[in-house]
Amino acid sequence: MSAGSTPMIFVHGYWHGSWCWSEVIARVAAMGRPAVAVDMAGHGLRADRPQCLTRRPFAPEAVATEVSPVAGVDLDQAGDLLVSQIREIGQGRPVTVIAHSMGGTVLTRAAQLVPELVAHAVYLTAFMPPSDVPGIACVQMPENAGELVAPSFRADPAAIGALRLDLASDDPAYRQQLRDAFFGDVDPAVADAALGLLTPDAPAGIALGATTLTRDGWGSVPRTYVTCARDMAVRPALQKKFISDADAAFPDNPTSVVALDSSHSPFLSMPGQVADIVAKLG
């Protein structure tokens, strides 16, 4: 199989779904590349929404207390699901996987489990944690200071088992904070449409899980990191730390780096550039 015909699988991040890749997929397909976006465990068509955000009359206190219906979803499940998607789409042949944000932890797990089936791992401003470090620990690192996602949580993740956003809120300041966190350079109409498609609960278990990385596993897979200079969810300093930590752990397989001057969601603000980047990879 030539590099140009290697299937490409796109994995979204927390709260999003396969829908967020539609503009990129269209452009990649126009280049003649086989590509598909998948839903991560607990997201998209696999999501289950809490009742508190839509129940009437509305009970504001329930937003902070209702246990999430996706509280049981963890990194093991998410990684196994992605492995099954890789097997199904690749039909036993290697695929290129592009992951965004917390989807990077799931890509890392899958690549460690089946490195022979991942031709290239692409992290688009994604979490790429070191061995045995959970994604949530990276969120809390000093390099991620100033991020706007955690301040948007409307419940204690430890209490409800999820990272909850109040997507039904009519508070203009809160909604602007969500736009700034995820869609800073996205057309306002598109950003509002995207907010309407987000899932309110992201399973905390995915961020709490960690993967032990080995030289013959994840460390053997070619990888590219696409940095986003104006990201307010995964801060640029944390992106650089992911790259330097990976290169220190696996110096014989250094990370290729591509830079974008974008916010957290370049698949919406500059889909053509994202498509051009991934189409050039194996």
Rank of each mutant, 00 (worst) to 15 (best):
A119P: 00
V11P: 01
G4N: 11
G4K: 10
G135M: 04
Q85M: 14
A237T: 07
S101N: 13
P129M: 07
V83C: 14
R49T: 13
G219R: 05
L75H: 07
S22Y: 15
A246T: 13
L260Q: 12
A64N: 01
R109S: 14
V139D: 11
P266Q: 13
D76A: 15
R223L: 03
Q177N: 11
P151Q: 08
R175L: 09
A168W: 12
P200C: 09
S68T: 02
G32W: 01
Q239P: 11
P236I: 10
R215G: 13
G196S: 06
E61P: 04
G32Q: 06
G17V: 07
P142C: 02
P34N: 07
V278R: 00
R230D: 12
D76Q: 12
A159W: 00
D171Q: 01
A259R: 15
L268V: 12
D247C: 12
S18A: 15
E147H: 15
A35H: 07
F153H: 10
P222K: 05
S68I: 03
V118P: 04
T108L: 14
V149K: 02
S152N: 03
T211D: 06
L260H: 07
P34Q: 09
N253R: 15
G205E: 07
A162M: 01
S5I: 07
D247L: 10
P134G: 04
I160H: 00
K240N: 13
E147N: 07
W21D: 04
R223E: 00
V133S: 10
G135W: 00
M141N: 06
F183H: 15
M270D: 14
G32V: 04
R109M: 03
I89A: 09
L75I: 09
G44P: 00
E23T: 13
V149A: 11
F183G: 09
D261W: 05
G13C: 03
F58N: 04
